[in-house]
Amino acid sequence: MPSETPQAEVGPTGCPHRSGPHSAKGSLEKGSPEDKEAKEPLWIRPDAPSRCTWQLGRPASESPHHHTAPAKSPKILPDILKKIGDTPMVRINKIGKKFGLKCELLAKCEFFNAGGSVKDRISLRMIEDAERDGTLKPGDTIIEPTSGNTGIGLALAAAVRGYRCIIVMPEKMSSEKVDVLRALGAEIVRTPTNARFDSPESHVGVAWRLKNEIPNSHILDQYRNASNPLAHYDTTADEILQQCDGKLDMLVASVGTGGTITGIARKLKEKCPGCRIIGVDPEGSILAEPEELNQTEQTTYEVEGIGYDFIPTVLDRTVVDKWFKSNDEEAFTFARMLIAQEGLLCGGSAGSTVAVAVKAAQELQEGQRCVVILPDSVRNYMTKFLSDRWMLQKGFLKEEDLTEKKPWWWHLRVQELGLSAPLTVLPTITCGHTIEILREKGFDQAPVVDEAGVILGMVTLGNMLSSLLAGKVQPSDQVGKVIYKQFKQIRLTDTLGRLSHILEMDHFALVV
């Protein structure tokens, strides 16, 4: 994948999101292997301009796509893939009243899908469409860049269908997702969380590099694949309309690839034109409109599966009536509230959605109805927002919020430890010299600072030695090549209790 991002070429006709291997024109390309080798690009942008032909009021008969309808489940399912879809609609009884809503608040519980998330729908649909058009064949390999849930859905379907599955996901995604993927037989590649989507090191860039190296491999490409919004247009939206008897006044959905909100909203605009569509985008993402909503100094966020630093091709923002931004604290607070007060075992993005819903639905009156999409299960986040310690460490809970008995030293300040200034190293000294210094002084790690004293990161003896043994660096290389740029900081005025929580999850903390 090139470091400079080429513009994806656009073909003359058809839909841009065809499933299957992508040609340089962004659509299915038939021909000899030699032709494909000559024409197939190194990668295709996940934010390529959409060429979708959908228009409100256009006859369904003019759609270029294969459409399906929700099917009634048999008493005995032939395999677990038949437990994807037909998820329950559940009334939220307490939270709406707590925040003064007059309307009825309903939750579409997508964590009841077989793999635990709304992404099971698009995973199965992308595979079925690729099999139907002859792209996927027995023994082929599926590769997908994902925040985890699409990966789980694909790995689940691949396990049943017999495909090899490789999932490329950023490091910030939970260990629970990784464990589930491994249990399903998927191979996992992790990428830096802070890598831009168009960087060769991003999950998108690495996935395309693997595709170019592995024979008979395919990126189904949830960011561009029409099967993504079509899955929701054909099934999720129809289920909502049936469950609500066609009567709903507002739908609120958090947005990642945009397939969920695009597919549902398009069908609702056709069948229930008075329904307002509300999009939820986390602070630090750029999906919301108008652009002024996205202006923030924050560039990272903890909530998973929603928000991006690019506009995915499948996201149709014209069908969203209003956007709201959400933050991590309210997302996790509301997710825990949904679990504790409503018994809905949902993930953090569901918290984002409901946090926005109780604001947006203030305009609705008694007798009206708001539906929220709860995308995934708490299963993926047992060591994250479900953990009091994690919430404390991230600053989303305060010590006084917890009532468990603490040891005698818990409320003492870090400054009472009488710490001395640490050994520091410059980023320009060599790895070999740094190892000598650390061994001589008896230290395992040291902060790396520039000549102005600005902290650049941390270097550890173990990481340097393993990097040297693996051949990633040489003793003569500058130590700046092996620094940890993500590390926890703590102030002298913070409590030892807070430091204790940090050290339970990290090997060190830097006192500043």
Rank of each mutant, 00 (worst) to 15 (best):
Q242V: 11
K82Q: 12
A71D: 12
E201G: 15
G148P: 01
E171G: 05
R209K: 13
V178R: 10
A183T: 10
E128P: 08
S23C: 06
L28R: 06
T236R: 03
K98T: 10
F111P: 01
G100F: 12
R125L: 05
F197L: 07
P41G: 10
K172I: 02
H218E: 07
A186I: 01
S147A: 05
A71W: 05
K98P: 10
V204M: 11
E40C: 04
L251R: 01
G26K: 10
K269H: 06
A158R: 02
N212P: 04
G31C: 12
P64Q: 06
G85S: 06
R196V: 03
K267E: 06
S27M: 15
P59G: 05
S217G: 09
L42C: 10
A130Q: 01
A237S: 06
N212V: 10
G258H: 00
I167L: 11
L154T: 01
A8H: 11
D129I: 06
A114F: 03
S117P: 04
K247A: 14
R190A: 01
G57W: 09
D238W: 08
D245V: 09
E131A: 11
P6M: 10
S117D: 04
T257C: 00
V10G: 11
E171I: 07
D221G: 07
A107M: 02
G96H: 08
E176K: 05
R182G: 12
N212E: 10
R190F: 01
S32W: 13
H203I: 03
V189H: 07
P273V: 10
W208E: 06
S217V: 01
I142A: 04
V252Y: 10
A253P: 05
A253Q: 08
D133E: 14
C15M: 08
I214Q: 04
P2Y: 07
E270D: 09
G96R: 15
T193C: 07
S50C: 02
G185F: 02
A253K: 05
G258T: 01
K82D: 05
F99G: 14
K97W: 05
T262A: 14
E128Y: 01
L241T: 04
S174G: 01
Q222T: 02
P200G: 07
R182E: 07
P170T: 06
A24Q: 12
A107E: 07
Y223E: 01
G14I: 12
L154H: 01
P229C: 01
I122P: 00
C165D: 01
V204E: 09
K137P: 08
P74G: 08
K102Q: 15
E37T: 06
S254T: 07
K267V: 08
S19I: 09
S23T: 06
I264D: 06
A231W: 03
P170G: 04
C244Y: 01
M250G: 02
R91A: 08
E104S: 11
H232G: 00
S117Q: 05
T236F: 04
I92M: 11
I95V: 12
E176Y: 00
M89W: 01
D133M: 10
K177C: 00
P74C: 08
A60F: 06
C275F: 09
N216P: 06
S199I: 06
S27G: 13
P88D: 04
E4G: 11
V118G: 03
I143G: 04
L77A: 07
I92G: 04
F111L: 05
V252A: 14
T257E: 02
L101S: 01
G205S: 13
L230R: 06
G148T: 01
D129M: 05
L184C: 07
D120I: 07
G205L: 06
S61D: 05
T135Y: 15
S117K: 05
G85Q: 01
P78H: 11
S50M: 03
T150W: 00
L230I: 11
W208G: 06
T262I: 00
S202C: 02
I95Q: 00
L105E: 00
D129K: 08
G139E: 01
A38Q: 06
K108G: 01
T87V: 02
E40G: 15
V189A: 14
K119H: 00
P145V: 03
P273F: 06
